[in-house]
Design a binder for these strands. Structure first.
Length: 591
RNA sequence: GGAGCUGUAGUUAAGUUGGUUAUAACGCCGGCCUGUCACGCCGGAGGCCGCCGGUUCGAGUCCGGUCAGCUCCGCCA
């Protein structure tokens, strides 16, 4: 029954034929999307990557071909030879690109059958992620997924074109590389030839691209897979793709301008949207003050407002004793019910908040559990600072800056969604600059690099490394789009003595620095040029362009939240022989 | 490591206060059908109610545990 392709050659794809092909003899190949068997007349919608074409099996055209076509089922693979003709008057389907024509079959071949698919390959069918991932090859046949992959391809192509035009050279760096102490948990690969030694998969090609600058390569880029063995999120996979680039003899502005050009090309090539350059810039401090997060979604206002000074002597101890008190005013938010406020309270507790204070502003009074603790002057000052109007609701957070900002910053996003404040189709880019160089690692009780240990401090802050590390600023920059961090980079340290100071400030001993990063500090000693660069999260960018809510939608074969592949069942156990070759022995599970 | 949501036919869902044979739509199978396009009409098959245990005369329903998928916190230089 199943036939070979023989000498049949495809002449067109399934979104190609139109009125200009009338009377042409064509050959199409693809999958049966729908079958409409009228007995005397059979229609199928033939699908390939590009689209659908209606095929008609008619006894008048070829009685045997029509008779045999009764076996066709969903996802059978067929080759069709036939004539292009107009559909009868009134039978056109304007919802299809090819809806005005059809191909009447002269001859056809069944190239393969298909088991009944576990789910319908239609957009309207909402299938569980589990099934979609298990049968990913079927999921990818769906139009939306196919379009996502295509858009990703177009995006990559446009970025390569731009970077090539701008004098960048694409260089590949090792995937089997060295484990480094800072940063994310490494994926390890045991070395068979070197018992007890391990490679790590790169978290990013950071050190290699710096070495390429020292190699005089001047402008490097790579579309590169990166690996981080950390827990997954909707926008985090253990392997993901970076657009990684580095430039010699540059300052921040050159990297930023190049990046903006790249975004302009990308958005033009994929969604045909012009971008206004340059993008606005905001300091880290400003972002934290106004938005509570270092990746502010600037598509809507709903700013956080600092009211610490107003309540610092308040009777309300919770406010008076707090390091930071901030408020967020929602215009006409007073219609929130008690139940809804309870839900929001539960929401902020996720971020470590103890509770959520609120005030509903009425015409002549405040309805609030905390109003009785505030005196007239405090009320008046709050009223003025927050520009309160009847019908508003105000939420407060008091406590440590970390928790206040996290709770209120995330509450801001939640409220925007709730009150439908986020304009659709808007693309708000913003650069975040002047990051702190260090952050305090509570667990390890030491300073950790905010960006990474190779980020250059501001020259004027060099002396702070030893005296007041918390005040030192980094020459780092993040690009944020609609509240997503889509890229980040910095000007790097290119002098060995400054790099040594940096390691020292991070509590990395001279010995350890030599063992872990000796090759870099050595290289810095041989005429390293000033350099800087940036890396973009390609998956997140494409996700936003596809209006998807998870990067799984733009990765062909993603992992589940537990880091497994439902399609291949990886990771799996391996035979003991294989472990022995690698000089590995599994620890007793009960130990 | 932690919190939450979900799990019933191939799929998506409904299933009341614990009570007879677990519903529906789509899909699938058979039949009819020459202008459909998510074709239509007639008929049919299809269930370890995620899994294990408990409560009960009786569990899809209540309780405990466990597994899986998703969302989030921690984590992600």
């Amino acid at each position: 029954m199943i036939q070979t392709l023989g000498d049949w050659v495809r002449s067109h794809h399934c979104a190609q034929l139109n009125g200009s092909h009338l009377g042409a003899q064509v050959c199409l190949m693809g999958w049966v999307q729908y079958r409409r068997d009228h007995g005397g007349l059979i229609f199928i919608d033939l699908r390939d990557r590009e689209g659908l074409t209606q095929i008609v099996f008619s006894p008048e055209a070829n009685a045997q071909a029509h008779q045999e076509a009764h076996v066709l089922r969903s996802e059978y693979v067929v080759a069709i030879q036939g004539l292009v003709r107009n559909r009868p008057r009134g039978m056109e389907n304007d919802s299809l690109v090819t809806g005005r024509i059809e191909v009447v079959v002269q001859d056809w071949k069944l190239l393969n059958t298909s088991r009944t698919p576990p789910f319908l390959l239609e957009e309207r069918v909402d299938v569980s992620d589990h099934l979609r991932l298990k049968y990913r090859y079927l999921d990818l046949r769906r139009k939306k997924m196919s379009q996502n992959l295509k858009l990703r391809h177009l995006g990559l192509q446009s970025i390569r074109n731009l970077l090539n035009d701008q004098g960048f050279v694409e260089v590949e760096t090792p995937v089997l590389t060295k484990s480094t102490p800072e940063g994310a948990r490494d994926f390890l690969v045991p070395s068979r030839q070197n018992p007890g030694h391990f490679f790590a998969l790169p978290q990013s090609p950071q050190l290699f691209k710096q070495l390429l600058m020292i190699s005089g390569q001047d402008r490097y880029y790579q579309i590169v897979r990166c690996f981080r063995d950390e827990d997954l999120r909707a926008d985090r996979q253990p392997e993901f793709t970076q657009i990684d680039l580095e430039m010699a003899f540059v300052q921040e502005d050159q990297v930023i301008e190049l990046s903006e050009l790249m975004m302009q090309e990308l958005f033009a090539a994929t969604v045909n949207t012009p971008l206004q350059l340059p993008f606005p810039r905001m300091t880290y401090d400003e972002a934290m003050e106004t938005y509570g997060l270092d990746r502010p979604d600037t598509r809507f206002e709903l700013h956080l407002q600092n009211v610490t000074d107003i309540v610092k002597n308040s009777q309300f101890k919770l406010f008076a004793q707090a390091d930071l008190v901030k408020a967020i005013r929602v215009e006409a938010g007073g219609r929130l019910t008690r139940k809804e406020i309870d839900d929001l309270t539960a929401f902020v507790k996720i971020f470590g908040a103890k509770g959520l204070a609120w005030i509903k502003v009425k015409d002549d009074e405040w309805q609030s559990p905390i109003a009785k603790f505030l005196n007239e002057q405090e009320k008046q000052e709050l009223h003025n600072r927050l520009r309160l109007q009847s019908g508003d609701i105000v939420f407060f957070q008091a406590g440590s800056p970390e928790i206040v900002n996290a709770a209120l910053g995330n509450l801001r996003l939640k409220l925007a969604e709730w009150f439908d404040l986020i304009p659709e189709n808007r693309l708000d880019f913003v650069w975040i600059t002047d990051f702190p160089l260090f952050e305090w690692d509570q667990e390890e009780k030491r300073w950790a690099a905010c960006h990474h240990p190779f980020t250059s401090p501001r020259e004027t802050d060099l002396h702070l490394l030893e005296t007041a590390p918390e005040q030192a600023r980094a020459r780092a920059y993040d690009l944020v789009l609609n509240g997503h961090e889509i890229g980040g980079g910095s000007i790097r340290i290119h002098q060995a003595d400054i790099q040594a100071k940096m390691f020292q400030a991070l509590g990395i001993s001279g010995e350890e620095a030599e063992a872990k990063f000796g090759f870099l500090t050595d290289a810095l000693g041989y005429g390293a040029p000033p350099h800087g660069g940036i890396a973009f999260g390609l998956d997140r960018l494409i996700m936003i362009l596809c209006k998807a809510s998870s990067i799984r939608e733009v990765i062909a074969f993603p992992k589940t939240q537990k880091g497994t592949c439902l399609l291949t069942d990886a990771p799996t156990e391996v035979p003991t022989r294989q472990l022995r070759e690698l000089n590995l022995r599994l620890r007793d599970k009960t130990a």
